[in-house]
């Protein structure tokens, strides 16, 4: 990558992080207006992880995600309007209005689901990877999950089998130090999660998840190793969610001072400062970026507002095959 392309790429990373942040801020606003209902989990603070990891994947790789997946979906390339419409429960949403905030799916980008079940996606990713291996495709199945998932049995079963069979899975652990309201150290005998993963005989390392360049570099290396047939790889991406766990969370489990400490490491603020210092970003560029993002989100909201509801007659459709298309 030459210098110009490199500069443009770094601005693009910042833009994607900002895009998630603004999307989430708008989502919170829409939730209070009851446009979006049900449960919703915001990604604010963790943007560098989604952007750094998913930018490093190829278009035909698969992504298996979590219930905190709006950011993953956006970076993966699902149009913001399809994600927003899904959160509204509109038929025009990427899950046709049946998934909502927690179950965003998109076949075109091989985005194999948000998942409301912690740890539920890991076996799925192992299966996707096994299919690729059996069919001789050099694709990566990237599986995002939180630190809470490390406690579930499926985590251990999945890492073991993926390592044993040398499957092309990239395990991406978004360690934000809380499984909802339970601090990592209260749940794990070995809170250095990459050490736990390494015991399954796969490549494992820890990355500063607030540093988008570090995340991207580590993911590129890891994905290349996985794609080259070296078996699975595990990245522990240390990050922090600034927002509450969900929209109903009084955050009794953590000190405000702790949140403030982490906010000083806001991945967007840090990276913006870094780009300015390098002379790669100025006020005008940033203002243009913000304006473009605001326009995209406004269009997404308008699209969702204008969407249609699934008719009540369709309530029981798509439970079984409805036969071949006429």
């Amino acid at each position: 990558m030459n210098d110009v392309a490199h500069d443009e790429h770094r601005r693009q990373l910042l833009r994607e992080m900002l895009r998630i942040r603004r999307f989430e801020e708008k989502s919170a606003e829409l939730y209070t207006q009851e446009k979006i209902r049900g449960f919703m989990h915001l990604y604010v603070g963790e943007e560098a992880v989604a952007v750094g990891t998913l930018q490093a994947l190829d278009a035909d790789d698969a992504v298996v995600s979590t219930y905190r997946e709006h950011g993953h979906a956006l970076v993966r390339g699902i149009p913001a309007r399809a994600v927003m419409a899904e959160m509204y429960g509109r038929q025009e949403g990427c899950s046709r209005g049946r998934g909502g905030s927690m179950h965003i799916f998109d076949a075109a980008t091989r985005f194999c689901g948000g998942n409301a079940i912690v740890g539920g996606g890991l076996p799925l990713a192992v299966g996707l990877a096994l299919a690729d291996k059996l069919q001789g495709r050099a694709r990566v199945s990237a599986c995002l999950f939180g630190d809470g998932a490390v406690a579930e049995g499926e985590f251990h079963e999945s890492l073991n089998l993926a390592a044993l069979w040398k499957l092309p899975v990239l395990f991406l652990c978004e360690n934000n130090f809380y499984a909802m309201g339970t601090a990592l150290a209260r749940a794990q005998s070995q809170p250095d999660l990459h050490l736990k993963a390494a015991s399954y005989a796969l490549g494992a390392e820890v990355v500063d998840g607030m540093d988008v360049l570090a995340v991207e570099a580590a993911t590129r290396r890891a994905a290349q190793a996985v794609r080259g047939g070296g078996g699975p790889y595990f990245l522990e991406l240390r990050t922090y969610r600034f927002s509450a766990h969900s929209m109903f969370d009084a955050q009794l489990y953590r000190d405000k001072a702790e949140v403030e400490d982490w906010r000083r490491r806001d991945p967007i603020v840090l990276f913006e400062r870094q780009l300015r210092a390098a002379g790669v970003l100025d006020d005008a560029t940033l203002a243009r970026m913000e304006a473009e993002i605001a326009a995209e989100i406004a269009a997404a909201v308008a699209f969702a507002e204008a969407g249609s509801w699934e008719p009540v007659e369709d309530l029981t459709r798509f439970v079984y095959s409805e036969g071949p298309a006429p």
Partner: peptide, 15 residues
């Protein structure tokens, strides 16, 4: 309830 998965909020009342 019907023999389907619980829908999102919009159709919840229908289920």
């Amino acid at each position: 309830g019907y023999d389907t998965v619980m829908p999102l909020f919009r159709l919840e009342h229908a289920f």
